[in-house]
Amino acid sequence: MPDDTLGRPFGVPARREPVLPNGVLGMLIFVATEVMFFSGLISAFVIGKSNALGGWPPPGQPRLPVEETAFNTAALLASGVALYFANRAFKNGTPNTKRLLLLSIALGGFFVLFQGAEWVALIGEGLTLTSGQLGGFFYLLVGTHALHVVVGFIILLYTYRRLSRGDLDGFAFWPAQIFWYFVVGVWPILYWQVYL
């Protein structure tokens, strides 16, 4: 392209190709805000822990199920990996996409149900929102994350419906994936902070 002395092309300027599609960029910005939201929650939890006079976890409170949740963490991570391979299959146009996406959704659903069962057990042991700092922060952090998992689950179901109707394109699939990777990626940090 010929440039003039001012470094600008003659004639009609070329249309630029956006570096990122609108949906992807919008979702990335949204996820950045979510990262800050969870950073705020984790910071609050760190400060809450530091205030505990009798050490953390507070004595006399139910223990959190560390091993069971480790298993559940693995399930959620596997869901993220399945989605990654679903995307690879989608790009290559192989028919595996549907199966992998379904696997990812199923593992996400399993995570929520498992956590629900865990909550029922913990409430039975006397750990509630108002039972103390441990209960408050536990349900706040894990509950907020669970809410995000449910939202991501619905988004993935919607993606699956569009895929099975055959009108899924990358512009809808990428943002959904970004959100799910965020939900999957933030969980190990929460697990490390809250359970360990």
Binding site: A32, V35, M36, S39, V46, I47, K49, S50
Partner: peptide
């Protein structure tokens, strides 16, 4: 009076500032 609490405030300040 809790040193851990003061340290926690410093740590989370650094954390919250550096993440964005």
């Amino acid at each position: 009076p809790l040193e851990e609490n003061r340290q926690a405030f410093v740590d989370t300040t650094v954390f919250l500032t550096l993440v964005p």
